[in-house]
Design a binder for these strands. Sequence first.
DNA 1: AAGACGAAAGTGGTTGA
DNA 2: TCAACAACTTTCGTCTT
Length: 324
Amino acid sequence: MLILHSSKEEDERISTETSPHPVKVQHCPECGSTRIMRDYECAEIVCMNCGVVVAANLTDRGPEWRAFDDEQRAKRSRVGAPLTFTIHDKGLSTMIDWHDRDTYGKRLSPGQRAQIYRLRKWQRRIRVSDATERNLAFALSEISKISNGLNLPKNILETASVIYRKAVTEHLIRGRSIQGVAVASIYVACRQCGLARTLDEVAQASSVNKKEVGRSYRFLIKELNYFIPPLKPSQYITKFSNQLTMQGKVEEIAHKILETAKELKLTSGRGPTGIAAAASYIASTLIGERKTQREIAEIAQVTEVTIRNRYKELVDRLMFEMSL
DNA sequence: AAGACGAAAGTGGTTGA
DNA sequence: TCAACAACTTTCGTCTT
């Protein structure tokens, strides 16, 4: 494009940043060509035909930030409400308020009031226009509700909304329940962000059963090509210690136990919750802040038997290693 | 008596033919 | 699609503190 700049990135910058400020039709004083280009990088106006610099020391009246596409431009523009993916129109719609007053605070005339009333009605209708929009609006409100119920942080809510939007644009919703996919997206978001929430917990916070959520979850990660590593037991330990209100020391020891367990290859193939529960149990007995197996089992959502089995394996192996 | 332990049978999910 | 399989659960009797 521009001869002065050969790199592709700079070509893009010039093409996107010059377009919002159209140049008044100018002619090159050398060759008379109208192919005049502004180059803000060098603060010059250049003739594209013969390469002569028409004007120098140009002022860039554009924004100081760079944007390479529409989305970035929308994000960086510092006007309007912040973008959010949790509302179906990304929170950018303007509302006509319900006060029947003009900008000076004066009451509107009856004719104007009727007109505003009609405008409001149409705005409501247009805001959620087609089936896809309605689907999105319903699902996103559902996602907000559930993630509020689970006390999930805001970034999970945003991530889940983005995942759901992706599912909609890839036409993955057809043939399965909106709620199922919505709950599944929350679960995917939790897993992606490394938040220790079990499928059970997420499903229980919604009205969808676990099986359905699991199915939708597997479907989502398959179709959207997500790679989600299995949750590490250590992430559960932190959670359990918090819920059991144990000392920081206990948590620390539990993590150490877990590390040795991993080295001894005792973790593979086992449920991460069971191992984490067993490690927490051992740590609590070692410290002397004894918790019963039942207490831990309840919080970890596993049975006492599982804790016992993991615990036994761990102790046996550790004793064996010590004797060597 | 509460909690820990372990055996036996049952359950739901994964894997490979 | 189905059987085999490992992990896990449920249940229950026994032991320990």
